[in-house]
Write a protein that binds this DNA or RNA. Structure first.
Lengths: 163, 163
DNA sequence: TAGAGAGCTGGAGCGCACTCCAGGCAAGCG
DNA sequence: CGCTTGCCTGGAGTGCGCTCCAGCTCTCTA
């Protein structure tokens, strides 16, 4: 089974304990290991295995290691990267931009200026989006207040009718 | 021409003045009128005419008036509605939800509680998204700092080489 | 009276970000 | 030894939110 070959040689964790770890992994990285199967990574990142494989196909992953049978073995570094990707995704960065960033990282140190630029531009974007959201929040508050007022008035009228 | 039949009878605005108004309309509602053609609305909302017609098809507009030749004539109320729709869209509300809200509005006063609920749920969403964005902003700041530090160090080293 | 220009309709097409499928392989279990 | 489980691949399919197209009408201007 895959559990055995993903546990480093020398570690004698019995299968039942590994299972417990697998059980508790929902949005927590399984501890005490450094190589994870694709389904474990799916479990703790919230991404589907399809999406993980797709990220690799499009060049969004920095080369994932394989087991001797050709199965993916993700490292803690990979999980850190996926964490960053997840955040950028949540903030609406297009996948194409993330792929570009990934490519720059692969290309080495001389691309650091460009990476900084990319992130800085995105940060500006995020700031703008926060401002937008806040301004809409005001409109939402205003409208909800109107509905709430109307409801309170209606309830008061209903109360008055009772007596 | 359409300009004439969209100007209320009795208003004698000459065409050239109307043109000036049309010129300045980029993201400002043309003033002094109460019926707008689809391209005027496209101009001041930033939506395409395609999108405006599509919104109507899917039930996102509360019945747009027509001229005697069957062309759309948007009112200020319509523009207000589009303003709300635009804000909800910016905050990521799915079109299906906006359609549902539009339907509730059409159905009259007895749907107010449901509308309030819908907006309140969305407000919660927006708040969560703002929190998410802010937390990502921190990560971004952190990473950008690292890049900036590296860059400054590199520049300092380069400077040192010169002398 | 011909041509330009704006608008109309139903329906097809598109880009993005996944999501799923068919067909196949390797390992462990009863 | 067959069955199940988990993973593999390339490629097709999906849902959303538009976006565009063909073919038409109406009105104005030269």
């Amino acid at each position: 089974m895959t559990v055995l070959d993903s546990v480093p040689v020398g570690t004698t964790t019995p299968p039942d304990i590994v299972c417990t770890v697998l059980e508790q992994q929902r949005h927590g990285r399984p501890v005490g290991r450094e190589r994870y199967t694709i389904s474990e990574v799916a479990g703790c990142t919230g991404l589907s295995v399809h999406t993980l494989r797709w990220y690799e196909r499009i060049g969004l992953m920095p080369h994932v290691d394989r087991s001797h049978t050709g199965q993916r073995r993700y490292t803690d570094r990979d999980l850190d990267w996926l964490d960053l990707v997840g955040r950028l995704r949540l903030t609406g960065m297009p996948v194409a931009d993330m792929v570009r960033y990934a490519r720059l990282v692969r290309e080495g140190e001389h691309t650091m200026a460009e990476r900084e630029e990319l992130l800085t531009a995105h940060r500006e974007d995020v700031r703008k989006r926060i401002a937008e959201l806040r301004s809409t929040l005001e409109v939402l508050d205003y409208k909800i207040d109107i509905y709430a007022d109307a409801r309170r008035r209606a309830e008061a009228a209903e109360g008055a009718l009772k007596y």
